[in-house]
């Protein structure tokens, strides 16, 4: 690993900030996707349930 010198705080801080933003965005997008999948499955299930005699 290369030594980051006297500005290590700024370099590591940049990478941590990037990781935090990307992680938050990814978690939000995936959580939203899963929630909509569940909601759609529930609606489909209700619809199929109503189809049965």
């Amino acid at each position: 690993m290369t030594a980051l010198g006297p500005h290590a705080f700024f370099i590591i801080g940049s990478y941590l900030a990037t990781f935090a933003v990307i992680a938050a965005l990814t978690i939000w997008i995936i959580a939203d996707n899963r929630a909509r999948k569940r909601e759609l499955a529930r609606l489909d299930h209700r619809q199929h349930g109503a189809d049965r005699p």
Binding site: I22, L25, T26, I29, N33, R36, K37, L40, L43, Q47
Partner: peptide, 27 residues
């Protein structure tokens, strides 16, 4: 590529959201 992957997932979510809205209104 990572951003495109996120965009694809977000687009899929939005398509589902619109289908849910349509189904709810129809119901």
């Amino acid at each position: 590529l990572f951003a495109v992957a996120l965009h694809l997932v977000a687009m899929r979510t939005e398509i589902m959201r619109r289908r849910i809205r349509t189904l709810t209104i129809l119901a």
